[in-house]
Design a protein around this nucleic acid. Structure first.
Lengths: 344, 344
DNA sequence: TTGAAAGCGCTAACAA
DNA sequence: TTGTTAGCGCTTTCAA
């Protein structure tokens, strides 16, 4: 049976009566080994159940096949779905992951974190935290002197870094256009916290769709939430007060949309006849809200996968001393139409 | 400004005019360094912005300050909350995390995974996947020959491994007793998939409470779901058919409970007057279901934290060559009473 | 096709 | 209090 003892390359070499280099060559599939020697070494490796030390390999190769991952808010479903995409793709391409979760979305003490990753010789870093206020300011200061490739997930486009993100503006625009197509004239909006880039984009998309339709938006037509169901309810009640004509609402995420449905029910407002509701994110539960929620689905799992894929490309370029350009990869969200906007 | 170049201990030593050993001593806060030398070395370290290579340290110390984490189903909120607890506590105690997500809950090819962790010299492993069918069978075969401490999260108690888990049986019992206290006589159950240990425990808790109350359960009183909202709906409709007298239901998780509320609404069944509903898990959204859901809250974040804490203890014992006994740490869930069982 | 020597960056053991 | 010597386990020269 397999033994998990510390067998080293030296043990294998001794057992085979060859040098350690020869074993190393076999390990790395080098051509310059006699067939007979190779098969003997392989046999011994199997027998001893030898596994090379990844750490020693990292040290001498100066390459670890490990990516660093920075995430935040794992208690929310979005970040963890992205992480799941990251783990899946990393496994696929044979990379390990060193994980750090920031203690808050606006955590700002980046320097030690970067040092930690570097001291662990990661080959690249995936930065999967939302852009809020100035929490990405460190990029200007630190990025120029960091030699490790970094890819960012979900942030405002800029030319000096690589980014993978969903088009939040477009998603919001599509959602709002859907309401316009249904003949709605008074489309309210409940935004996420506007210090979030994503929240701002969604609000802009809402405004753009309305303005494209020849209508216009006013301050009374929207209210700000903080993504939570609780805040969504509060924002909705405010909207009801400020904007009595409201006949539909585009809500910044599904959690807040849930409490809109809930509050509408409590206030005797019928959905979708008196009020049509569209959410954002497309979490699985939204299909089971009452009524089921029309929403903009962004596939965060895919987002994570694409980020790893792209980072791998950059790292490989980097290793061949090629300078890879900084691309922004934009993914397109998808409108899921359900009963909260249409009577089936 | 900080430079992220590869400064080594040798550079520091040369700059200070001392040996690498002395620098190493300063790094590790050894007492046997003259105060003057120490401060000079520290100064140079700061100036060069030197960071020791964690990987080289791991190799020579034979200790990495990294734990391996095995998770599964990150797209669900439970596992990711546990992971969040793990990252938080690990950060607190100065450990890094190497993360692997299994491609499925019943993934069974454990040997290479263990090898991978060992080859990366992790100091311990946190196994945070649910026990399903015989997916933990490998423990009998592999654990005896693995020399790395492993702690398991959420599995059936056994004396040969260390475990941290919520008391699912007790939680279910409390939930059902709550319904009994309300005077309910016909308490149905929608279980999770019974190849899951947790689902079985919850069903047993339901049975125990009913039997303790002098009542008894029959096959018609329960139905099996698969945790998803969709399956919950199906199970509930089946219950309605099989058990027309039903006046309350204890549901195996909140997602399935959500669709019970939903289906009840569609069938004109009023909650809680005609049907009282209790869920399990206590996900944040459950507070905003219509009506808000009474549920058994298990703090999965805490679960993760406790697991890391306990693993640290075991690893430290292990390092001092002490044999640490295998404890099962049991956490107690908490009943949150809301409108789905009581009219406020 | 193989092996010896040097080195990756660090620490433990010993000596001075 | 400090430095020297040998590793940790592997790979990369370079020579044979």
């Amino acid at each position: 049976m397999a033994e998990y003892k510390k067998i080293t390359i030296y043990d294998v070499a001794k057992e085979c009566g060859v040098s350690r280099q020869t074993v190393s060559r076999v390990l790395n599939n080098r051509p310059d080994v006699a067939d007979e020697t190779r098969s003997r070494v392989k046999e011994v490796i199997r027998l001893l159940n030898y596994q090379p030390s990844a750490i020693a390999q990292s040290l001498s190769r100066n390459k670890s096949f490990v990516f660093g991952v920075v995430t935040a808010g794992l208690k929310y479903i979005g970040p963890s779905r992205t992480l799941s995409g990251i783990t899946t793709k990393a496994e696929e391409i044979g990379y390990g992951l060193l994980l750090k979760e920031l203690s808050s979305f606006t955590f700002n003490d980046i320097d030690p974190l970067l040092h930690w990753f570097i001291s662990h010789h990661v080959d690249g870093i995936i930065w999967a935290t939302p852009e809020i206020e100035d929490n990405h300011n460190w990029i200007d200061v630190l990025l120029p002197i960091v030699e490790i490739p970094i890819i960012f997930i979900t942030m405002a486009q800029r030319t000096d870094v690589s980014i993978v993100a969903f088009d939040n503006f477009l998603g919001a625009k599509i959602a709002t256009e859907h309401l316009i197509d249904l003949g709605k004239k008074h489309i309210g909006h409940i935004s996420g916290p506007l210090d979030w880039w994503e929240a701002r984009q969604r609000k802009l998309g809402w405004e753009a769709a309305i303005s494209d339709a020849g209508l216009h938006t006013t301050e009374k037509m929207w209210a700000e939430g903080n993504w939570s169901s609780k805040s969504g309810k509060k924002a909705f009640l405010k909207l009801l007060d400020n904007y009595p004509l409201i006949d539909s609402v585009f809500v910044g995420n599904d959690q807040m949309a849930l409490s809109v449905l809930h509050a509408a029910y409590e206030n005797g407002i019928e959905i979708p006849s008196q009020l049509s509701v569209v959410g954002f994110d497309g979490i699985p539960e939204s299909e089971f809200y009452c009524p089921p929620l029309t929403t903009v689905f962004q596939n965060q799992f895919l987002l994570g996968k694409v980020a790893v894929q792209e980072l791998l490309r950059i790292v490989d370029d980097h290793q061949h001393n090629e300078v890879s350009e900084n691309k922004t990869i934009t993914l397109t969200p998808e409108l899921l139409i359900r009963k909260s906007t249409i009577k089936f």
